[in-house]
Simulated assay, not measured.
Amino acid sequence: MYAPIMIVMQYQLPLPSDYDVSTLRDRIPAIGARFDNLPGLGFKAFLLREQGVNGSPLNQYAPFYVWTDPAAAGAFLWDGASGGFTGVVGKYGRPAAQIWITGGYHRGAGFGAPVTHAVRVVTPVPADIDPAETATATRETVDKRLDEADLHSMTWAIDPRTWELLTFTMHTKRPDVSEGELYEVPYVSAPNETALQPA
């Protein structure tokens, strides 16, 4: 028997180089409260990058979602409800919403402490590699990392259109990063985190 399908979704919104990121940082908790009871949402991490901080080359707002119910993800994107994607389109224009099928979500040793940072790594799945091999290797990597003291949680997923592997880690303090994108996380809404499934 298979676990229910979970969907990862992210859209990345570049902000002007002279944008005052602190104003958005201050608004995010109020925005996040609107998602704290949203049905079908495992969690939403509010991600920020600020130009010149943590090595970021740009200002960026890049919300990251893991949905426990694909229908809820669809409703968020196109049912026009207040607080949904319609609000994003009205303020920022219509960004591309990246979608991955989630392989697993796992709590780390730091789960329960406030999240401060996140790291997103996207790597291609080589054309000559069976995706099942990539999934097995990723599960093994996840298992080896869950004891890291400052690791809150880890999500991995694959985009079967581009055949890219996504790993997304949330941390309770700033991690050392050798690859991927490092984000500040001012807020996490997690109304249905307990429904997220490991794989």
Rank of each mutant, 00 (worst) to 15 (best):
T141S: 14
A109E: 08
T172E: 02
P14E: 00
R25N: 09
V8C: 12
L146G: 01
V66Y: 04
T155V: 12
W156Y: 08
D26R: 15
W163N: 13
P16R: 03
G180W: 02
E148T: 12
K173C: 08
G84W: 11
A109D: 07
A45W: 01
G55L: 06
H106Q: 10
L24H: 06
A118G: 08
S82F: 12
G87N: 15
Y11P: 04
R25Q: 10
G110C: 01
T134N: 04
L47H: 13
H106G: 01
D143S: 14
G83A: 08
T138M: 03
A96W: 13
D130W: 07
Y61S: 05
P175A: 02
F168H: 07
F168P: 03
G32P: 03
D143K: 15
D147M: 11
H152W: 04
V188H: 03
A149K: 13
S189A: 10
R25I: 05
L13F: 08
G112T: 05
T141E: 11
G93Q: 01
D79E: 12
A132W: 10
S82Q: 15
L47T: 14
F111R: 08
D130T: 10
V8W: 11
V177H: 04
T86K: 15
G42V: 02
T68H: 00
I158C: 01
W100P: 01
T155E: 01
D150F: 06
G84Y: 07
S22M: 09
Y61T: 07
D79F: 06
A33S: 13
K173G: 10
F64D: 00
